[in-house]
Design a protein around this nucleic acid. Structure first.
Length: 438
RNA sequence: GGCCCCAUCGUUCAGCGGUUAGGACACCAGGUUUUCAUCCUGGGAACACGGGUUCGAUUCCCGUUGGGGUCACCA
């Protein structure tokens, strides 16, 4: 039996306040691969830009990861603590002849340290893209320490990956060209070269890569809009990868079991918000009723609405029709307050019609005769009314719905009426007639 | 522009020489004897183009076109 080294992957973002959706997808793939192989997933905060790497930015990053369930196996490494090691390595490269000093461009800014490429053609096998080659003439030497004495990304990145014993570097497509340089550095440093996997870009609805201008591309935005972390994780995992069969809504464990880098596609994928929304709805319907109820209560309380009697019955009615928690308040507020708004368009289209008010008057009469006011009784009464009067449901139900809820759509009307109760239902119908008739 | 990568329905993921080219989202129609949502049924919808290789190409090779990445003392 061959003893293989434990897989160690990492997510190495620079904390600049917002975590980009493409970056987070890379984090997800790193996490998934580590979990699939029984290895470890690490975090390295590349916070060398002290201007932008604020404590708040780091907090935002950590929160986004927690929200998505991306747990790490070791204390995060902060790159800013590693400057001395980076510089020491540069000296070592200088001493071994793998780097040289030069006043590049003769700008008079002083000498910087430049890494010397081996001058041979290079090739490596990318786990998702296959074999990639580069001619020696196409890769130039590059700066690793600036003339002001600070290490450049390439140096810091490679050294920290060595420090963290990373075995698989899984990152965005935009790093493929750098990989040739990085491999040369691993070799010059006498360090084992890790495996590389470059993920295709995620592009926006216009077919362009997400940029800072795409306001909807940050992880925090999805959280604010009420998406579930698990749903976003699931959706993102399926962008560029599939389990090989038709499964789409999957549990974490199912994704972990099925995940592999070699089955990742190498072409860019476009984010489809509608499918994400659909998937979120799948997750909403999958949670326990009591969890959904708790979610509803927090949404309502945030909106200043106090859920009254029968709130749980209302929530039960809502769970199967909710895709985003933000829909809850507008859809249920009328249950808990008499001050609900009327949908003006609905009123004009469905309520202000010939016979509507007469019809509503009759319904009041019928409701008054009912002793029980449960959903079934109400339903039967309404059906009898329609049939005996030779009416159409389409002429009766919409005005009634608007009268009690102000809206033209919602859950089944009978249970809605039952939850409101006889007194309130009748009172609301009366109030509506007074307000809009004549 | 040089170098590199990519190319299946509108979107996404399958397909890895022979298939009626499949699933999902979205869309359309019908149904679940009121709406919307859910759910069910059905439908339209794709192999960028041109050459090869082969008995046979969506699949392999080359080119074209299109898209993307990268060419910093940014990361």
């Amino acid at each position: 039996m061959v003893k293989t080294m434990m897989t160690r992957t990492r997510f190495a973002p620079s904390p600049t306040g917002h975590v980009h959706i493409g970056n987070m997808r890379a984090a997800i793939f790193n996490w998934l691969y580590a979990r699939h192989t029984g290895g470890q997933f690490l975090l390295r905060v590349e916070d060398t830009d002290r201007e932008r790497s604020t404590p708040e930015a780091i907090k935002t990053l950590l929160e986004a990861m927690e929200w998505l369930g991306l747990n790490v196996d070791e204390t995060p490494l902060y790159q800013s603590t590693r400057m001395e090691a980076h510089l020491a390595a540069a000296e070592k490269l200088l001493a071994s002849g793998h780097a040289y000093k030069e006043d590049k461009g003769g700008t008079g800014q002083g000498e910087c340290i430049i890494f010397k490429m081996p001058g041979t053609d290079m090739a490596f096998t990318d786990l998702v893209k296959g074999t990639l080659k580069k001619s020696a003439k196409d890769i130039a030497d590059f700066v690793i320490v600036r003339s002001n004495g600070t290490p450049v990304f390439h140096l810091a990145n490679v050294l920290d990956d060595i420090e963290q014993k990373i075995t698989h570097v899984i990152r965005g497509d935009d790093h493929v060209e750098n990989t040739f340089r990085h491999i040369a550095m691993y070799k010059a440093l006498g360090a084992p070269v890790p495996q590389f996997a470059h993920l295709p870009m995620i592009i926006n609805a216009q077919g362009k890569p997400y940029s800072k201008r795409d306001g909807d591309a940050f992880v925090g935005d999805f959280q604010e809009k009420g998406f579930f972390g698990d749903a976003l994780f699931n959706y993102l995992a399926l962008l560029g990868w599939s389990p090989g069969d038709d499964r789409e809504v999957m549990t974490r464990q199912e994704m972990i079991d099925a995940f592999d880098l070699v089955t990742v596609r190498s072409s860019p994928a476009q984010m489809d918000l509608r499918k994400l929304l659909w998937m979120n709805g799948e997750y909403v319907r999958a949670i326990k009723p009591e969890d959904f109820a708790a979610l509803c209560r927090s949404e309502l309380s945030a909106a200043g609405v106090t859920p009254g009697d029968h709130a749980d019955a209302v929530f039960a009615l809502m769970q199967e029709r909710t895709k985003l928690p933000s829909e809850i308040v507008p859809a249920t507020a009328f249950f808990f307050t008499e001050e609900f708004e009327y949908d003006q368009k609905a009123v004009e289209k469905k309520l202000l019609k010939e016979g509507s008010f007469q019809c509503l008057e009759k319904i009041i009469g019928i409701f008054q005769t009912l002793e029980n006011f449960d959903a079934e009784t109400v339903n039967t009464a309404l059906h009898n009314f329609v049939e005996q009067g030779g009416l159409k449901f389409g002429d009766v139900m919409p005005p009634l719905r608007i009268a009690v809820s102000g809206q033209q759509s919602g859950p089944d009307l009978a249970p809605v009426l039952a939850i409101l109760g006889k007194e309130k239902s009748i009172a609301r119908i009366r109030k509506t007639i007074e307000r809009f008739k004549g």
